[in-house]
Amino acid sequence: MNSLSPYQLRQQIRTGLFSGQTSGLASGYVQCNMAILSQSWAAEFLLFCQRNPKACPLVAVSEPGQFLLPELGKDIDLRTDLPGYRIFRHGKLTDEVQNISALWRQDLVSFLIGCSFSFEDALIAAGLEIRHISEGKNVPMYNTNLPCVPAGRFSGTMVVSMRPMKPADAIRAIQICSRFPAVHGAPVHFGAPEAIGIFDLRSPDYGDAVSIQQDEVPVFWACGVTPQAVITQAKPEFCITHSPGHMLVTDLLNTSLASF
C-alpha cells in the first residue's frame, strides 16, 4: 500500500479496497484533516481556524457545494476519497462511514486542514523514529486543557498528537517541524503531560497507545482533530469530519509547505 501514488491510493479508497488509517502512506505528499459544515456556520469556523493556526492550519477551503478540489490533486472527490468519515448531528457523533455521497448538500463548505502526518516524512528523513509508524498503529491523540481562541459559536480546548522521543531527538524535532507551520509546526509541549491536562498516556482519546521507553519523553503537537472537539461543544445541526487518522492524501508535495 505504501508503494502506491496518492492518486492510486485515493482510487483504492474510493472503491472500498482500502479503509485504514493513512499514517506512513504516500511518503512525501501532503495529507489533510477535513471538516465540512453548512454555509451558515462556515464563516465562524473559518475565523476559528484563522485564530488557531497551530491546531487548524488551513490548506484549502471549498466553495459551497463544491466537492471536487483539483488544486489539491487529480480527480479528488471529497465525498469518496477519505478512508473514513464521521457524521455529527447537533454535536453528537451519530455514524462513521466510508462514503458521504448520499449525504451531500449544496450548502456544504469543506475545510482542509494540515496534518502532522506530513511533517513525519521530514522527521524520518532526519533519522528519527516515529513510534506509531514503527508499531503499525494510529498516532495517539489526547484532549488537553490548552484553550483555543474562540470565534463565534466555536470554542474549546486543543487536541494534541503525541510521539515519544529521547530529549535530544525532541529538540531536533522542534527544529525540523518549525519549518512546517502549514502542518502544525513545532510541538506545543513536551514532557509533564499532566501540565496540559493529560493524566494517562496509555489511554488516548483518539488513535492508539504506543510504547514509551524509560529514556524518552512524550512530545505533543497541535492536532487537526481539534475541530471535532470544538464541534461537539458548538453543536451545529450537521457536520462531517474525517475519522481520526483517516486523511485526505493529496498530490501536493510536503516540501511545497516548507517555510525555508
Rank of each mutant, 00 (worst) to 15 (best):
N2E: 14
L4H: 13
L4Y: 14
P6W: 11
P6H: 10
T15R: 11
G16E: 11
G16F: 12
G20K: 08
Q21H: 15
A26P: 09
G28D: 10
I36F: 02
L37W: 01
S38A: 14
W41N: 14
W41H: 14
W41I: 08
A43D: 13
Q50H: 08
P53A: 05
K54D: 09
A55I: 00
P57I: 08
V59F: 06
A60S: 11
A60Q: 10
V61P: 02
E63D: 13
P64H: 05
P64A: 09
Q66E: 15
F67L: 10
P70D: 07
E71I: 12
L72C: 08
L78M: 06
D95F: 13
N99R: 06
I100K: 00
W104Y: 05
D107I: 05
L108T: 05
L108D: 06
G114T: 03
S118F: 05
E120Q: 08
I124T: 10
A126D: 12
G127W: 02
L128Q: 01
E129Y: 07
E129I: 12
R131W: 05
H132F: 09
I133A: 07
N138H: 09
T144D: 03
L146Q: 06
P147T: 11
S155V: 05
M158Y: 00
K166I: 15
K166V: 15
K166P: 03
A170F: 01
I174A: 00
I176V: 04
I176R: 00
S178G: 10
F180V: 04
V183A: 02
P187H: 00
G191W: 03
P193T: 01
A195Y: 05
D200M: 04
S203Q: 15
P204S: 05
P204F: 03
Y206T: 07
G207W: 03
S211I: 13
D215A: 12
P218T: 13
F220A: 02
A222G: 09
C223K: 00
T226A: 03
V230S: 04
V230L: 13
I231Q: 03
T232E: 15
A234F: 06
C239H: 08
T255G: 12
L257K: 02
A258R: 06
S259H: 11
